[in-house]
């Protein structure tokens, strides 16, 4: 029974990871930009809960006020489009994003 649960969890993680590649990395490309974004979010929102909430909020309804990017950048490229993902998937993707790129786990 334990084995089954463990296998299910691992496969779910891989499933989520592959969804992340598909839903996020397919457009955003490399890790560098994601790193930068996480730094910006961490610098502004500090805690895990607030960072995740801020990302979710922005992706659902992107505005220049909510964006963590510099005003000049937004002015030039504009804000991104609204997400097409449902809330549940979006939150899962944000969780994967945070787990991979958060600063806290990289401090030594």
């Amino acid at each position: 029974m334990v084995k089954i649960i463990l296998l299910a969890l691992i496969s779910l993680t891989f499933l989520n990871a592959s969804s992340f590649e598909e839903n996020c990395l397919s457009c955003h490309g490399n890790d560098f930009k994601f790193n930068m974004m996480m730094k910006k979010y961490t610098q502004k929102y500090s805690s895990e809960k607030r960072i995740k909430e801020a990302i979710f909020d922005y992706l659902k309804e992107p505005t220049s006020e909510k964006s963590v990017l510099p005003y000049e950048y937004i002015n030039r490229f504009g804000t991104k489009e609204k997400t097409t993902l449902d809330d549940k998937t979006l939150r899962e993707m944000i969780d994967v994003y945070y787990d991979r790129f958060n600063l806290r786990s990289k401090i030594y």
């Binding site: 790193n35 500090s46 805690s47 895990e48 607030r50 990289k106 401090i107």
Partner: peptide, 24 residues
Amino acid sequence: HENSDERYEYPRFENFKSAIYDID
């Protein structure tokens, strides 16, 4: 924060110790 990407070395000092906490 500004100059590291992969790993972040926490600043250590000889004459004092420190800790950091998030907003929560």
